[in-house]
Design a protein around this nucleic acid. Structure first.
Lengths: 347, 347
DNA sequence: TTGAAAGCGATACCAC
DNA sequence: GTGGTATCGCTTTCAA
């Protein structure tokens, strides 16, 4: 008796089934099934008659039963870990909408670092989701990922995991970071710094390596490289102050926008510096906040819509099913210059 | 052939079933079922033997089949509409975690204002979710809600819909708004203004009415009441400027934090006012941004954890199943005073 | 095109 | 405590 007692008055009245509908109409159950299957071979008038009657008696095909016989759920599991970074909620919202548009529902798996990952992900397998989309900066080992997605379509967004044999679609971090470095150079900055979020993530490694490399190529000085430890506003503030205390810089590239927002506020309010006159700030992602006049953050925009379109496309056309060759789609983003990084000299 | 071709090499290998497992072990299928049913009457050693063997051959009970026979999905549908307001992603994240903790998965329904609501919600019924949680400021008519949730547990969070016969759990908007008014009064403000988000939502109506009423009781002047039209940063900026142009005020209560953030920035940067010296600003929700030093927003904190605990509790104990008397839980929040509303005079 | 019947993979009731 | 078996509601051959 650990399950809730459902009062019998209304709740127990089970919904009508295809069998009942068929009997009422004097047709076969198969006919009902066909009536609700687009493209099934059934006479148009029969289909109409069934559908109309179904409407009247409020019949709806039971998706669960359909899942069982078709072994297809039309559900994709979305594995998420850090909803704190506003970039992800926005992404998830658009993604789930796009999936809905092609008849797929989103089952959310919010994983937490601490506890047993396999336990958290076991539902992914038991629910027989058709596909899994992993949107998560958290470290999920290739091993865990392989286990969790075994036998079904799977896709990583914004991450690459070398040893998991998973396809992925990501923003071109390298081009983005180089663009930021170039922009700093062109606007006269020479002493730059880099702030990482979670230093071990592939996202960060790509951005950092590309930026540092380009900075060296351009002959600029990398005065500091600070690991903020997490992707948060507060961490951004701390990182910025650390850079200031270590002697400063004339431009800082933060690994993402939320860090940059914190950094920018700290530079202005705590360090008393002028952004962009004393120091330029740039982020990555182009979240909503970046365009707020107060921040007006120069950043590299992730092509969210394209990322989603490609991801949904890959799930639809089956190109990320197991057995298919894995593909890595790198989508171009766009440098967005705002006033957090004006020219140092217009001369 | 509209469905993706799944390559046959690995994908088609169906997972092992209870029946197969039973045969391999020379026991009945019922035994296997019992082994995986906590509290079922089965000999401990038999259970161990089965579970151990299951582990070896990688058997996992198929949740879909179980759903069909139990008519219980362990899935709750979460209906959301505005993920733009950072309050909601944060809420959803915590909610889905709490649900997972009691063995419930979250199926996300992201509804869009424009298109056909019933079509968007029809999946709710077909998927036979055990319960529906509606977190949505968007206007869903009582009629639509009744239809969408018919026959299953349902719960509104942060909203009341009078004609839908749905239980709900909400923050005490009235106490919160009165607290803000009191706080303005105590800190010496006398000419106040109110900015609404979506003026027709119950959330807004409660906050607005309570605030306006309390303002009158205290003998303060309500200089302006502006409808921002949406809950966004930009709308907050516009509303603040409108108040300034209409003659100003010495305190503004924004219907939520994201509006307040925009308003605060506009007051400082566009209107050149000092917050809180010239004008005080308060919001509602206590989202992450409110505690950022740059905003340091005075606000009324919604008791998110309690809201979620109560909501999950109501779903678990069945108290929001149809046929049960509907309940409206109003949970107390907490006034958080920060520096966007310092005293005007300490004398 | 249509209907009959055999699954899909569990659960639950029934004897033993 | 254990094994047989009907059942959940739909999909899908297979004949007609």
């Amino acid at each position: 008796m650990d399950k809730p007692e459902i009062p019998d008055d209304k709740a127990k009245r089970r919904p009508i089934t295809a069998r009942q509908l068929a009997r009422m109409l004097g047709v076969s159950q198969s006919a009902v099934s066909r009536a609700f299957t687009p493209g099934a071979s059934i006479a148009p008038d029969l289909r109409d008659r069934i559908k109309q009657f179904a409407e009247e008696v409020d019949y709806h095909p039971n998706a669960i039963a359909s899942m069982l016989s078709k072994s297809r759920t039309n559900i994709v599991g979305i594995v998420v870990s850090d909803m704190q970074n506003p970039f992800y909620p926005a992404l998830i919202e658009k993604l789930s909408r796009s999936l809905q548009r092609v008849g797929l529902q989103s089952l959310l798996f919010n994983i937490t670092k601490g506890s047993n990952l396999e336990e958290q992900l076991s539902a992914l397998r038991r629910y027989n989701v058709d596909a899994v989309i992993i949107i998560s900066a958290t470290i999920l080992s290739g091993q865990t990922l392989r286990w969790a997605t075994e036998g079904r379509a799977a896709l990583l967004i914004n991450r690459v995991v070398e040893d998991a044999d998973l396809s992925c679609v990501i923003c071109d971090n390298v081009a983005g970071s180089r663009a930021i470095a170039d922009h700093f150079y062109e606007t006269g900055r020479r002493r730059v710094a880099y702030v990482s979020g979670l230093s071990h993530t592939t996202t960060n490694r790509e951005r950092q390596n590309a930026f540092v490399t380009r900075v060296a190529e351009l002959g600029m000085t990398l005065c500091a490289r600070v690991d903020a430890g997490e992707y948060s506003y507060e961490a951004g503030r701390r990182a910025a102050m650390e850079i200031v205390e270590r002697g400063g810089a004339d431009a800082i590239f933060f690994a993402n926008d939320i860090l940059a927002a914190g950094g920018l506020d700290a530079l202005r309010e705590e360090a008393g510096l002028s952004v962009p006159d004393d120091i330029a700030v740039a982020g990555f992602d182009d979240i909503a906040l970046a365009s707020w006049p107060h921040y007006a953050l120069t950043t590299f925009r992730q092509p969210v819509d394209e990322i989603i379109a490609v991801a949904v496309g890959m799930i639809e056309d089956g190109s990320c099913y197991p057995g298919r060759p894995i593909t890595i789609k790198r989508l171009p983003g766009e440098l967005i210059v705002r006033s957090s990084s004006h020219r140092i000299s217009d001369s």
